[in-house]
Nucleic acid binder design. Structure first.
Lengths: 196, 196
DNA sequence: CAGATAGAAAAACATATGTTTGTTTAATTC
DNA sequence: GAATTAAACAAACATATGTTTTTCTATCTG
């Protein structure tokens, strides 16, 4: 017995459309009808691919985490210096979340508490990605009295807030990442090598 | 002709209940029926006080800005040093937004884009409050090449993300505010007076 | 080519939700 | 104490929304 996937399968289109609408409007405000219309299906057809709306969101979330992880992993491999690696990650992360059509935006905009029935699953997926930031902050040479957990949480807050204020014409992700690490870097280094 | 307010007016109870539910669940997920039940009214009765759900949210928002502004104004008056004033403001702000029953939480959780029809009004109210932070950051003695706008936006992101991860038993608002300013302070001061 | 079936259409269902309308009650005012 | 009306009740309305069921069709397989 075979479970072949047909050539005109539109699962990918469905996922793309869902990501875009979830990202733009949030979970509740993105209706199944809107999603169906966007990908040229009828509402009921979605249920062939996913048993319910919640599962559809989880599907988008999974793809988002996959894309983010892949990209970030690739970027941080380009440097060995801990601060440089952090900046590379932030730049890549910012770039992906300010792009409204991207899956990554969904992970930033829709918080686990927004969908109580899928809470644990969403938390699990988020954690899977946030491990990268945890490791990068963990690798920084910092004074002993700096709370790395708080530092990480401040970073997440700053970064994930960017889509709220960022406008297409404004600062580039790289510029933002540079300013952000600059702010944190100077003081926190054990032994600053450079001075202005 | 008189427009007297009756002694058993329950507008305040209605606003309190609305604030709590908006804060807990967000705009869409907080239904008029939930709000009515929480304050012991019937759904239709709410419409005597506000013409629609959106206006009810604006009412809560207004009260939230009022409370935040009042409290912050009082706090920052206790110091003259720019960094100390910033820390005082952040501590007060954090304290108010981690309290789930407070109006302030609504302003943090519900973003203008969540309610397109009331977007401008909500932006106006938020700006009214954020002026305090703008002034405080503006008063900091910083190197010329530091982008104060970005610094402010990073701060807002860090701070407003706190309710997402904060748990009742965890760090106190004052401790968090101290760590946050510590992170920003050391490097950005033109002339550091203290060294570890 | 013929049968099987992946994948979507069509249409309805059940319920949730913001809101409206007519009515009642009790506080206020003269 | 009677008239007024603030404030809430009671009940329905209209629509939106997630979902289910049945039916059709184009693709794949043997």
């Amino acid at each position: 017995m075979t479970t072949a996937i047909r050539s005109n399968n539109r699962l990918d289109v469905l996922l793309d459309s869902s990501a875009e609408l979830f990202s733009e409007r949030g979970y509740q405000a993105a209706t199944m009808r809107d999603i169906a219309k966007k990908c040229g299906m009828l509402p009921g057809s979605i249920y062939y691919h996913y048993p319910n709306k919640e599962a559809l969101l989880v599907g988008v979330y999974e793809e988002g985490v996959r894309q983010l992880s892949e990209r970030v992993q690739r970027e941080i491999a380009r440097a060995t210096d801990p601060w440089e690696r952090l900046e590379l990650m932030l730049a890549a992360h910012i770039e992906m979340i300010v792009e409204p059509t991207a899956y990554a935006s969904v992970i930033i905009r829709i918080l686990p508490d927004d969908v109580p029935s899928a809470r644990e699953e969403l938390v699990r997926l988020r954690d899977k990605y946030e491990v990268y930031l945890r490791d990068l902050v963990g690798a920084l040479p910092l004074p002993k009295d700096v709370d790395r957990r708080l530092l990480r949480l401040f970073l997440i807050g700053s970064v994930n807030h960017i889509p709220v204020w960022h406008r297409p014409g404004g600062e580039s992700p790289k510029q933002i990442a540079r300013q952000l690490t600059r702010v944190f870097r100077r003081p926190l280094q054990v032994k600053p090598r450079e001075s202005k």
